[in-house]
């Protein structure tokens, strides 16, 4: 496993996250944390890919790490978790797979359906498309579930309404 290569990729993932953070106009105090979270999520994903974990699971792990960290960051920096998690998770979006799936679809339109290459392209396109879709689902699940699990809001509301009934 090439550790320097993985470190470098984590570093770049941080910058991709930072670019989107600025595009989404996040408050300045959150920028550094978003860079770090993007880099950590990317690092975990590429580390897992390095030990030959399935890419969907690796993305899920990376996104879950970001999701959990975003809840802590939200408490410390007083901004909702999604401000941190959405920009940080974007570097893991399966752009390359989606791109290849689209190229495959375009090729399929151009070739006749009973040729040998058609089946091969079809198989590759299905594979790329399914990977793209499942990685996307894994990313949003990884980010969304920690937010929902740790949300104290509902608890607070229930408690305050009970108190009102007591009075």
């Amino acid at each position: 496993m090439d550790f320097i290569n993985i470190l470098e990729k984590g570093f770049w993932a941080g910058f991709a996250a930072l670019g989107f953070a600025i595009l989404f106009n996040v408050p300045q105090r959150t920028l550094l944390i978003i860079w770090a979270m993007g880099a950590l999520g990317g690092l975990l994903k590429f580390l897992l890919l390095g030990v030959e974990v399935n890419i969907v699971l690796a993305s899920l792990a990376g996104a879950s790490l970001i999701g959990v960290l975003s809840v802590y960051a939200a408490h410390n920096k007083h901004a909702p978790p999604l401000v941190f998690s959405i920009p940080s998770v974007i570097p893991m979006v399966p752009g390359a797979f989606a791109y290849r799936m689209m190229l495959g679809c375009m090729e399929l339109i151009g070739t006749s359906s009973n040729s040998e290459t058609y089946l091969k392209t079809l198989a590759e396109t299905t594979n790329n498309g399914l990977k793209a879709i499942f990685i996307l689902i894994a990313l949003s699940a990884g980010v969304a579930i920690p937010m929902l699990v740790t949300r104290k809001d509902t608890f607070k509301r229930i408690k305050s309404s009970e108190e009102q009934e007591d009075q």
């Binding site: 770049w12 910058f15 930072l18 570097p91």
Partner: peptide
């Protein structure tokens, strides 16, 4: 910074 993010994507690939 968004352009930098674009080149980061390229580096990730």
């Amino acid at each position: 910074s968004v352009a930098l993010a674009g080149s980061s994507f390229c580096a990730l690939f």
